[in-house]
Simulated assay, not measured.
Amino acid sequence: MMWFWPPVQVRVIANAGHTYEVKSVEVAVEQMETWPLPETGKRGPKWRKAYKLCFDALEGMAEANDAGKAFEAAAKEAGVLRNIAP
Rank of each mutant, 00 (worst) to 15 (best):
A67T: 09
K23I: 04
V25I: 15
T34L: 13
A14V: 10
G17S: 03
N65C: 05
N83F: 12
M1Y: 04
N65Q: 07
L81K: 05
E26M: 05
K49M: 14
M2Y: 07
G60K: 07
G68F: 05
N15E: 05
A75K: 00
G17W: 05
E30P: 01
I84D: 01
R82T: 14
D66E: 08
F71Q: 04
E33C: 05
W5E: 06
R48S: 12
G79Y: 14
G79L: 09
P7L: 06
M1Q: 08
A85R: 03
C54R: 00
L58S: 02
A64Q: 03
R48A: 15
F4M: 01
K49Y: 15
L53V: 14
V29Q: 05
R11C: 10
F55L: 11
K23T: 04
V12W: 02
V22M: 02
T34S: 09
E77G: 00
M61Y: 09
R11T: 13
R48G: 10
N83I: 15
A70L: 15
M61W: 08
F71A: 06
A73S: 10
E21T: 12
G68M: 13
Y20K: 09
F71Y: 06
A28W: 03
C54L: 10
N15D: 03
W5G: 03
V29E: 02
W35P: 01
V10F: 01
E63C: 02
A50R: 04
A70R: 12
F55V: 06
N83V: 15
R43L: 02
M61I: 04
P6C: 11
A75W: 01
A62K: 08
K42N: 09
A75P: 00
A28Q: 10
T40E: 07
V80C: 14
K49S: 12
G60L: 10
Y20S: 07
F71H: 03
A67N: 04
S24P: 04
N15V: 14
Y51D: 03
P45K: 13
K23N: 11
A74I: 14
A74F: 09
E33K: 11
K42P: 02
K76Q: 15
K49L: 15
M32F: 06
F55Y: 15
N83T: 15
